[in-house]
Design a protein around this nucleic acid. Sequence first.
DNA 1: TTGTAAGCGTTATCAA
DNA 2: TTGATAACGCTTACAA
Lengths: 340, 340
Amino acid sequence: MKKRLTLKLIAKELDVSVSTVSKALRDSAEISEDTRQKIKAFAKLYNYKPNIIALSLKNRKTKTIGVIIPEIVHHFFTTVISGIEQAANEKGYHVIICTSNNSFDKEVINMEILANGSIDGFILSVAKETQQKKDYHHLTEVIEQGMPLVMFDRVIDEINCDKIIIDDFLGAKKAIQHLIDKKCKKIGLITTIDYVSVGKLRTQGYREALKENNIPADEDLILKVEDFDKSEMEIQSFLKDKKMDAVFAVNEHFAIYAIKAFQEQGLKVPDDVQVIGFTDGELSKRFIPSLTTVNQHGEEMGAQAARLLIKKLENEDAEDEPFETIIIETGLVERNSTKR
Amino acid sequence: MKKRLTLKLIAKELDVSVSTVSKALRDSAEISEDTRQKIKAFAKLYNYKPNIIALSLKNRKTKTIGVIIPEIVHHFFTTVISGIEQAANEKGYHVIICTSNNSFDKEVINMEILANGSIDGFILSVAKETQQKKDYHHLTEVIEQGMPLVMFDRVIDEINCDKIIIDDFLGAKKAIQHLIDKKCKKIGLITTIDYVSVGKLRTQGYREALKENNIPADEDLILKVEDFDKSEMEIQSFLKDKKMDAVFAVNEHFAIYAIKAFQEQGLKVPDDVQVIGFTDGELSKRFIPSLTTVNQHGEEMGAQAARLLIKKLENEDAEDEPFETIIIETGLVERNSTKR
DNA sequence: TTGTAAGCGTTATCAA
DNA sequence: TTGATAACGCTTACAA
């Protein structure tokens, strides 16, 4: 194994001092044109690249961002990462990604390790377990240490930091309004139990839209799925004999189970019933009929998170600036599960 | 911003030398029980954590693995990463993920940056553009530098390094055999043009299976999709009036377009035509009918890649050990697009 | 114009 | 049992 070229090696080879080499390579005016050229030529020839670790140690900054997400095998998070990466790379930052697998312990450990010098700041979406446990000591610790933290999507209200969220409430409202505009009168809702914050907000949006249109909310038309694994059955029996003309589901999967159930009942989507989902994934695009959904703009979310973090990182006075909460607007993507 | 606790700070606080602190914390026998306790208690109280960057510089190893993939918004790669992460974490390694976005330039740049000290070794699946360009200087450079490299899935035959591939040939063969076992006689193939190595191998598997069963290959039943964006149209017109009883598609999307086209012709899947795809993604699972596919075992692939890399990293004599190529076996996942 | 030395946070070696 | 020192690779104030 050839060992990597260092300033020291170059210095020895060219019989000058290390600092001369360093300065020459950084185009310092202190160094004579002559030696500068000589050194640069040599460095180029042997393909010298400064050691990033040494620079990090020296500068006390790593120019890398740590991202912790609940799971990577998930289209939405994956788009967020993609956005983070792009925005970060533009500013010369790198990205380290760790997954918590929705485990509190793994989240804590990952944060601790990354916080020990590997990164300059965090972008984080908390694990389900953390939400349930309500133990946030690892988050406060990192913040107290002075390391900037941006939370996205699954954020914790009690934690004081920058946040990027999507407008679940408005997104749901838009979806319902869309159905109402298409003359739907009996609109069902398939949502999650309330402790999942996004489910809750989307349910509120549903109610609000009905209210604004003077349609009384019918509790019989609302299903709160208890168990994700049994959701297909729950949805199937829920949709029996309800005679709805539309359904809004808070995620892709529920929406697809709904369509399936309708089809089994001999109903046609969108002719007999219209369906809207939430989260615009591969599934929504390719399913037949393709799904009209509320798009969460994951990439933009990621890009905004990265930009916000980098702003804090590079702005010395950022310390006392107040924390921001950026709300990403959702958009309705019309496809074939609703009428044109 | 509170500054992080360092050995130096502890030393000053406790009025001992830095080296004493270092040794005490690492339970060196050199240090008296007394001071050791005192120092450890203090460190614990103030939550001392060694700076990883300093350790990396000192040890000349970072305990982190760099992963470069063509795209992250892609279910298969995402499962591979998941596998890499798990296996790496088990051995105390971290993972940095960069995407090349299928761009040659970005691949080169990412590799250069990571190679400058941030990581101990690479796990890589090359960008499409790199495959086309056949410019591999960045790969050979890294290898010459003595940095271990493991390629997976999209590998380059000409590069001498460890490789993890899936058995595309055998996977395709299995799929076709499965169809033949179900009494299919006219089996179509929807594949890519030949320069995509996996498409080529899967096509070969198709031919081989037919041959072994003494079924002559009919070139009219083979479609090589030229343009991914227009694949839906191409597939639709290809499937007109061919009277096949089965189709094997080299990816999920082609398979779904095929089903769609059949349905539009009034044919039922799987009753009239059976369909098998490749790559087991979300889409295959949820589509109606759910897709029978060849599973690529992405997680296992990732885990094997990580383990192989770490083996090289930790084994001093690994230098002269020959490079390995590990072949991950595919498995057929039976669902509703083929008959039971 | 060039070089020396200190420092970033550690650990290992050797001396006290 | 403890501490001083050098080293990892780099930058920079200061000295020559």
